[in-house]
Each structure stands twice: as C-alpha cells, then as structure tokens.
Design a binder for these strands. Structure first.
Lengths: 121, 121
DNA sequence: GTAACTGCAAATCCTTTGCTATGGA
DNA sequence: TCCATAGCAAAGGATTTGCAGTTAC
C-alpha cells in the first residue's frame, strides 16, 4: 500500500482530532490542506484505513459513521446532541471467549446526557 | 402515535426473531404478512420505533444498520461473517456517570471470530 | 370526522465505481 | 518505469419525502 499524500492527510486529521468526524467532515477538513482532494478519495482511503486497522469506526446513533484514531479507549455518546467523548479509564476485563466464539476486541459505549444537555433539560 | 397494522407487524417481527435484520430484511419478512407494505413505511416505522425506544439499533461493521428487540443484553459480532449473537450474561456494572455526563444505558459489543469462522481459518 | 399513517413514486443523499491521468517507490 | 492511487463525474443504492387515499381512534 502506497502512502499517498492524500492518505497521510486523512490519517493525520483523524489522529490529531478528537471530534470523531464523519466522511463529509473529513472531506472539508482535508480540503483545507489540499483543495483538490475528492470525496471518492476520502471514501476509498477511509475504507482501506479501517480494513488495515489503522483507524476505527463509531456509529453515533443517527445515520452516520464516524471515524476515530486507533487507541485503546471507549466512548460516551450523548443521545441528545450526539457528542462523543473519549473514555480512557473504564474498568472492563476483556473475556477471551464467549461460549465457543473467540473474542479479539470489544467496544463499549456509555449513553446518556452530556453535561451541556443536562443543563438544558 | 397510532398503532397501525404495519407498525405492529414490524415490531412483532423484531421481537420474535433473533436474526437482527436490516431494513430490507424486515421489508421482505413483513411482505410475507402484508404483501402491499412499502419500504417507505418500513423506514418511517423503524425510525419512530427507535425514537420511542421500542427497539434498538446495532451497527454490524459493514455499512448496514440492523434492528433488535429492546432487552437488557449485549452482542458478540463476528468480524468475518458479521453474524451477531445475543449475550445475556455479561458482567458489567453500569456507572451512574462519567465525569459530569449522566449515563443512562450502555452497549457492549464483543468482536472476534464465531465458532464457524474459526473452523474455516 | 379527522389527523395520522399508508402506498407509491420521485427526489435526495451518501457511497461506490469506471476511466484516464498522476505520482510514489 | 509502472502500478497503485487520484480526480472527476456518472452510477448505484439506501433512505426520505410529497401527495392522494386510507384507517385508527
């Protein structure tokens, strides 16, 4: 796999942001660094970066997929404003298997109301 | 909200299946009970059933959303064949909050290789 | 009776893909 | 040099929506 400039830009944005952007968000962010980058390139690279495990995908409860750096962490998802907050200190011990199914990794999403949305209630 | 026959059929299929169907799968299943039901009706009802919390959504790692009965359980997702297996006996204690964010519920997905896919490796 | 819901079809939106050109190794 | 990848634009597929007719309450 070649490390094209486009691929580096996309990976760089994901690794240096904690906004958990979706494909369009990444497209707009990438265009600030390389104005001619196309949506097709964004999608092609996102797919291959996910396949190779260089980035992760999060589903945010609406209809969008959002992309995240690959790091051992979990998420809090606000069910009202769909903000996603990184969690690094959650206590959960990965089982090695569930029945005869082999467990490799896991994802935990805590759902609720973020600080701001609680105030507005 | 009116309990139309279409809505009841869709909810019934979800509650009495453990196949975690997607919108199209539900469409085909529903058509066996009501041949004139339309895709628009499926989508409209799925959206409102999710909004009212009568059903849940699971993202299966491909590009599809799948729908599930509302029950206190978690999932195992096979990263190879995308089979989803229900888990009822996972040990995790819901925190009441994460920092200043209020936690209402949580989702855990264990990922790995299911029994069948391990054999094929 | 009437407002909410349906079926249908068209519109919209997101994602993928075919093609030719470009650039990384 | 040459093959993977890019840009562009068109195609494809999933989801939403407008409208007229129907139905739950």
């Amino acid at each position: 796999m070649r490390r094209s400039m486009q691929r580096k830009i996309i990976l760089d944005i994901i690794n240096n942001s904690n906004e958990h952007l979706d494909a369009y968000g990444l497209y707009y962010a990438a265009r600030e660094k390389l104005s001619r980058i196309s949506l097709g390139t964004i999608y092609r690279n996102l797919k291959s970066l996910v396949d190779t495990g260089e980035i992760d995908v999060i589903y945010d409860g609406t209809d969008k997929l959002r992309y995240d750096k690959r790091e051992d962490h979990q998420h809090f998802l606000c069910t009202k404003c769909h903000k996603i907050i990184d969690i690094y200190d959650l206590d959960f011990k990965k089982p090695t298997n569930y029945k005869d199914n082999k467990v490799v990794s896991y994802k935990i999403v805590l759902e609720g109301l973020c600080e701001n949305c609680q105030k507005e209630e």
